[in-house]
Design a protein around this nucleic acid. Structure first.
Length: 674
DNA sequence: GGTGATATCTGGTCTGAATT
DNA sequence: AATTCAGACCAGATATCACC
């Protein structure tokens, strides 16, 4: 590249065409893009017909690339599957009556969001999230097909849904009811942002509470439920693989009208206290002394009102669960009893308990995932420091009853106390470096969740955290996204409970860890990144074409070299090397951390080990884990030559609970294979 | 000033693969 | 299976620069 342009005016033998910098040209091309037009030759015709601009197809192609107006087939399009899904869901959310079909949605996405997606992509996502709607839109199908609910047992299905009535005052509610008995299992006032994380988190809380998984979990197809989808499927496949996910999906999306257990329950909630709560909140404190822009005021009101509403909600669910339902002979499910009665005595009402139980070790893993996601801090409306101060101040008032009717009075009483207490740190807290599932909401197989392994007793334990996601979408069988987190990735993202004054947000999922999102979005992909993508694309189409795979790992690639000339060998080696380098940047990552186990007390981290290996997508998880462990072992043994190898016999030196957990999760994953 | 080297512009063709 | 499209590549034209 020269430092200057030798032909700045772009003059050549051809007639001059507008520059790509011309705002009018950009505007026109963008307009065509939003029409969903992706054919350059058609754009050429339109340009001439409407604007008298004459340009070649190649020029138009270049302009569109420069302006990032990418068609559905563009290899430059950096959207991940998950992002595409979000785009489609966002559009579906805007059509609550479900009247828009595939074509309309495609047009809308191009027009409203300026993104061109392939028809197949959109179709797949729509079918996954709202298959019923296709039937409903069929010509002649004007009526919602309702079938009477005929539940077989408690925990057969948990239904989750969000309630937006209190959303306008900043307190949305997420609730889960047991489908068969309509018993409220959980109802939480949650901070309105980070809905996706919180919903997944609350699901895990319920799993811990009932010590098991429901047979199915159903939600409507809101865009915030994709993480939940991933979690539910992953847990089911890992802990209860005998229940085939294809035959009986662990998570099903239902249209709101079909998700009747929960939808019906909202009505009572709204009548009982939802409307009143909004009215009371909007009244504000009696003195009118509320300044939302003051951080103390806003945090305190958030803290107090979330507490108030949660109390009210708890009271409501408790009351509803205890209330007797009227007898209904038409109803297949339980009636004429309270929800609690039906829930705890299912056998009396022709129901069975369909809970898929989890043992203590499995629950420990669930607990760990829950902590990874951010712990209870996810649900907090104020920082831990603030909450602590607020709680002390609140206790000092000796309030006997906190209701929506006296909340603002208590707010006024609290406020002066607050200024007497030591100053509150107005800063965000970086909590445990969390790892959320990269929940590809599409048809994914989550093969392996959290695996741990220790290589040496003595004083050291090695812990792995794997997040493997394998896309099975449309039978392509490609390892599409696999994320681990590297705790050592950047000093700023060290797991800690320390305060980070400049932390812009609380990293609760892997997507929020610094550097991970661009990595996933392939924003750092260079020209070499293309090689990697093309490899996968080739792989993706292979099953369909009945050809042998073209995307190989390094070893496979090198095996083919023997018949090539030396020059070709070098080229191929370089290519393999580039692919490997790219994988380090954009591919599979596995984090490994060494932990020291003292005689007593908590484990402490001493040093991270990083290993990288390229696997062909056909590699079984079991083998991949074995290889990785072997690779870690060497540097470890070099570093700690006197460490003993771990055997079944010498494990008794370790703390029993740690041992149990590590050993169990390790054997579980290794024995599962693919 | 003439010349060659080089960069960049546009238009065109070709190929493999995605999409219909 | 047919169609459509993106991207790679090539060619011709032009502008600029360094050098003689």
């Amino acid at each position: 590249m020269s430092s200057h342009n030798h032909n700045p005016m772009g003059k050549n033998q051809h007639a001059t065409v507008p520059s790509v910098d011309d705002p009018r040209l950009a505007e026109v091309l963008t307009k065509f893009h939003r029409e969903g037009l992706s054919s350059n030759s058609r754009i050429k015709q339109r340009l001439f017909a409407e604007y008298g601009i004459s340009a070649s197809v190649s020029s138009i192609k270049r302009w569109r690339n420069d302006l990032q107006l990418l068609g559905p087939r563009s290899k430059l399009q950096k959207l991940t599957e998950k992002e595409k899904e979000q785009v489609v869901l966002q559009q579906l959310d805007r059509d609550p009556s479900k009247g828009q079909g595939l074509g309309t949605i495609k047009n809308h996405i191009a027009h409203d969001q300026g993104i061109q997606l392939a028809r197949d992509t959109i179709s797949g996502i729509m079918h996954l999230h709202d298959a019923d709607a296709f039937l409903a839109r069929e010509p002649g199908a004007k009526r919602i097909h309702r079938v009477p609910k005929a539940p077989i047992g408690v925990h057969e299905r948990w239904s989750g849904d969000g309630h937006d009535k209190l959303y306008k005052i900043g307190f949305p509610i997420w609730a889960v009811v047991d489908d068969a008995t309509a018993r409220w299992l959980a109802a939480r006032v949650v901070p309105s942002n980070r809905m996706g994380d919180i919903i997944g988190y609350l699901f895990l809380c319920l799993v811990l509470k009932y010590k098991g998984l429901p047979l199915q979990f159903s939600t409507d197809c809101g865009s915030e439920t994709t993480q939940l989808y991933g979690l539910v499927n992953a847990l089911r496949q890992i802990f209860h693989p005998d229940y085939d996910i294809g035959t009986l999906p662990a998570h099903c999306y239902l249209r709101s009208v079909h998700n009747i257990s929960i939808e019906r329950s909202w009505l009572r909630l709204r009548l009982d206290f939802g409307d009143n709560a909004v009215t009371e909140y909007q009244k504000g404190p009696p003195s009118g002394n509320f300044k939302p822009e003051d951080p103390v005021h806003s945090q305190l009101s958030q803290w107090l009102w979330s507490k108030t509403l949660q109390l009210a909600l708890d009271g409501f669910t408790e009351m509803r669960n205890g209330q007797k339902m009227r007898k209904d002979n038409e109803k297949a499910g339980p009636s004429g009893c309270s929800r609690n009665e039906a829930f705890f005595l299912p056998q009396n009402f022709g129901l069975v308990d369909k809970l898929l139980p989890l043992n203590d070790d499995q629950l420990k893993i669930v607990f760990e995932i829950k902590e990874f996601m951010g712990g209870d801090a996810l649900l907090a409306f104020a920082s831990p420091e603030f909450s602590e101060k607020a709680e002390i101040a609140y206790q000092s008032l000796g309030v006997t009853e906190l209701t929506i009717h006296n909340a603002w009075h208590i707010f006024e009483a609290l406020l002066p106390l607050f200024y007497i207490l030591p100053p509150v740190l107005h800063q965000l807290i970086t909590i445990n470096l969390g790892s959320g599932l990269v929940a590809e909401g599409s048809a994914l197989q989550h093969l392996s969740l959290c695996s741990s392994q220790w290589l040496s007793v003595h004083t050291v334990v090695l812990t792995f955290h794997f997040w493997l996601t394998r896309t099975m979408k449309q039978g392509f069988g490609v390892v599409n996204a696999l994320c681990g987190y590297l705790e050592s990735q950047s000093p700023k993202s060290q797991p800690s409970m320390t305060n980070h004054k400049k932390a812009p947000h609380i990293p609760t999922t892997i997507l929020r860890i610094q550097g991970v999102t661009p990595l996933l979005l392939e924003q750092n992909a260079t020209d070499m990144g293309g090689t990697f993508r093309q490899g996968y694309q080739a792989q993706a189409s292979d099953p369909r074409l009945n050809k042998p795979s073209t995307a190989h790992g390094v070893e496979g690639g090198l095996n083919k070299l023997k018949n090539l000339s030396k020059a070709q060998t070098v080229v191929a080696e370089r290519k393999a090397k580039r692919e490997e380098a790219n994988l380090v940047g954009t591919g599979i990552k596995v984090g490994a951390t060494l932990w020291k186990i003292p005689e007593q007390g908590k484990m402490t981290k001493i040093e991270p080990i990083r290993v990288v290996h390229v696997f062909s997508p056909e590699t079984e998880t079991k083998d991949a884990l074995g290889t990785l462990l072997g690779m870690v072992r060497k540097p470890f043994v070099d570093q700690y030559p006197d460490a003993d190898m771990l055997t079944c016999k010498n494990t008794r030196r370790l703390n029993t609970s740690i041992k149990g957990f590590l050993w169990n999760s390790f054997t579980m994953n290794l024995s599962r294979g693919n």
